[in-house]
C-alpha cells in the first residue's frame, strides 16, 4: 500500500535558506547543502526545494545549489523557483531534480502545465497553489507577482488537474510560518474536488496536525518551520500518523 509522505520544504532566497511568516517576515537559516544533508541523514521521504524570490525578481533557482543538494539526496527531489520554459525544466532535471514545482508561470499560462506534463510526464509536474483568505473570509488564489487571479480557488484547482499536473502543493499563506495549526477546511475543500495527490502545507505545530491533514484528504504533509525551529522531526510526525493507523514509511 502506498504511504503518506512527510516532506520537509527548504525555502531559498538566492543562496541562503530562509523561512517566512505569512509569506513575509524572513529569517535567514544558512546553507542549503547543510540543511539537505541533515534531511538526508534523517531518511526523509522526499524534499521540496523552492526559491521564493526567483519569480518576483525574474531570476531562476540557482542550478549549482540544486546540483549540490541533489548530490546529497537519495530521495525524490522537487525543485521550483522561476522556472518558465521547457528548457528551464529540462536543465533543472539534468541537475538532479525528479520533479519541478510551478506556480507563477502556471497562473500566467495554464497550458504550460499541459506542455510540461506531455513532455516530461505528469509525475514530473507539481503545481503549487498559494491560498489566502480575503476580507470576507473567502479563499483566494494568491499571486506572487501581485496580479489579479481570474480563477476562484476551486476552479483553479480543477483546472490544474485538467491540464495534467501530477500533484498539487497547497499552501495556506495565512498559516505559513505560524506553527499555530492547519486549515483543515481548506485541505478538505481542495482535496475533495481532485483525484491527484494534494500535499498540504502551512501551520503544522505538532505531530498530530499531520494526522488531521491526512484525514482531511491530503495525500502528504509538508512543513518547514516546525523542522527548522523545534526539535520535532519528520519521523515524529510519522510516529503519530502510524499510531493513528495511517500507512507511513518507517
Amino acid at each position: 500500500m502506498l504511504k503518506h509522505r512527510v516532506i520537509p520544504i527548504v525555502l531559498l532566497d538566492g543562496y541562503s535558506v530562509v523561512k517566512t511568516i505569512n509569506f513575509d517576515t524572513r529569517r535567514n537559516l544558512g546553507n542549503p547543502i547543510t540543511v539537505a544533508r541533515i534531511y538526508n541523514s534523517r531518511n526523509v521521504d522526499e524534499l521540496i526545494l523552492l526559491d521564493i524570490n526567483a519569480s518576483k525578481s525574474g531570476e531562476k533557482i540557482d542550478e549549482f545549489t540544486v546540483a549540490e543538494v541533489a548530490s546529497e539526496c537519495f530521495m525524490p527531489l522537487a525543485v521550483g523557483g522561476g522556472l518558465r520554459s521547457a528548457e528551464d525544466i529540462s536543465r533543472i532535471l539534468s541537475k538532479g531534480a525528479d520533479k519541478v514545482v510551478l506556480n507563477s508561470i502556471a497562473l500566467e499560462n495554464p497550458d504550460f502545465i499541459a506542455d510540461g506534463a506531455s513532455r516530461f510526464g505528469a509525475q514530473c509536474i507539481v503545481v503549487s497553489i498559494d491560498v489566502k483568505k480575503n476580507g470576507a473570509g473567502q479563499y483566494t488564489v494568491y499571486s506572487h507577482s501581485g496580479k489579479d487571479v481570474r480563477y476562484s480557488l476551486l476552479d483553479w484547482v480543477k483546472e490544474v488537474e485538467r491540464k495534467g499536473a501530477g500533484e498539487i502543493v497547497l499552501n495556506s499563506v495565512d498559516n505559513d510560518g505560524c506553527m499555530e495549526g492547519c486549515d483543515l477546511e481548506l485541505v478538505r475543500s481542495v482535496s475533495s474536488c481532485v483525484k491527484i495527490p494534494v500535499i498540504a502545507v502551512g501551520g503544522v505545530k505538532e505531530p498530530s496536525d499531520a494526522v488531521g491533514l491526512i484525514r482531511s484528504g491530503a495525500a502528504a504533509v509538508a512543513a518547514s518551520s516546525i523542522f527548522h525551529f523545534t526539535s520535532i522531526t519528520p519521523n515524529d510526525l510519522k510516529d503519530e500518523m502510524l499510531a493513528a493507523g495511517l500507512p507511513v514509511r518507517r
Binding site: 500500500m1 504511504k3 514509511r249
Partner: peptide, 10 residues
Amino acid sequence: VSIPHIGWND
C-alpha cells in the same frame, strides 16, 4: 487505484 503508481510502497 491510480496509475501511474508513484510513491513509497512495501
